[in-house]
Design a binder for these strands. Sequence first.
DNA 1: ACCGAAGCGGAGCAGCCGCTCCGGTAGGGT
DNA 2: ACCCTACCGGAGCGGCTGCTCCGCTTCGGT
Lengths: 196, 196
Amino acid sequence: MTSPPAATRSDAARNRVRLLDAAAGLITERGSDVDVREIARRAEVGMGTLYRHFPTKEALLDAALEHVFTSWAAAASAALTGRAWSDLSRFLGDALTRQTASPGLLDAYCQALPGQAGNTARQHCRQQVGPLIAELVRAAHASGDLRPDITAEDVSLLLVALGRIAPVVPEPSWRRILHVSLDGLRASSATPLPHP
Amino acid sequence: MTSPPAATRSDAARNRVRLLDAAAGLITERGSDVDVREIARRAEVGMGTLYRHFPTKEALLDAALEHVFTSWAAAASAALTGRAWSDLSRFLGDALTRQTASPGLLDAYCQALPGQAGNTARQHCRQQVGPLIAELVRAAHASGDLRPDITAEDVSLLLVALGRIAPVVPEPSWRRILHVSLDGLRASSATPLPHP
DNA sequence: ACCGAAGCGGAGCAGCCGCTCCGGTAGGGT
DNA sequence: ACCCTACCGGAGCGGCTGCTCCGCTTCGGT
């Protein structure tokens, strides 16, 4: 009588994963403007299949990005050493290196900035990395290396800004800018900030 | 016999200016992906006219941007006071304010970054502002306020990076980041940079 | 083995964009 | 005043993109 709610078919589940993988790959390689046909092709799947699993291109990209951000956050927290300042600067450097190889990564992260129109769905991608940044900031405050008037929001914003140039200039160039920014974040260079 | 080389007709000249104005307006208001039809409409001109004056959309945008960058550079040098550090930080703040109102401005400037594919034409837009930055950096080095290992290229890059976030976050937010970056640029916070 | 239904694929639709083409218009030298 | 010619306008072409539709396939419970 009460048939089980619908045990999803095995091929359906497999194709869903294929789509997510293909979308994640393309979005990180080429940025957020991908052709749906190409996603379907890479996933070895038809258009109909794509649109059965996800109501819209946006929805697919959101779902794929959630995976990407989750694994990014996992890798980043695995790299923590406990030394606050070096963890923070390592995190930023690694994030930008990642962004260099995947120009679309922070591009998507940027679209999740608070106050952006729509994109409420993509906001929660940001929730994968946000807490990690908050933690890094808290630790660096506690150790006294990070100037106390800096918020996690500031660090996020700085990361997004640098992420926009990292893929389009040679690595030494953006490393210099990161270096300068980190110097500005040090407690020793504090100068009164305009309030939040 | 020898007819004068072709004294351009008056309406042709007028329409050329209209096209440049319309293109400049749209590109600064909405960014660099504008519909040619919309440019023509705002210029109150037909498509044929547009493409007679400029061989391609790119060419029109390049020409329009040259005007925009020239007037930006003029306004910026008019605002110089002679006090090196305050001139530099004012320049950056003003540039970002301008970018806030015209999200496409630094967007275009960014596309002129060295090493970008193609875009050789747009490079010379950058030549309007580049020398000004070089001058500001030179003066700030001379006054001893700017750390000596910073190049004009570093400042350009920093400006582009901040310009990418300025239009999408509230002004106080990006002002904080600018403030932090300026602190990092001060001679007092010098920390050995990775070489150029 | 059977069979209903969930799932599949890809041709096709509608809309957008850069650009071209050509019949009509009007500027300006004579 | 005339006429030749440079110039104008906008319909239309080809290509790309997000999305839909529907005939066929294949899964998996019985």
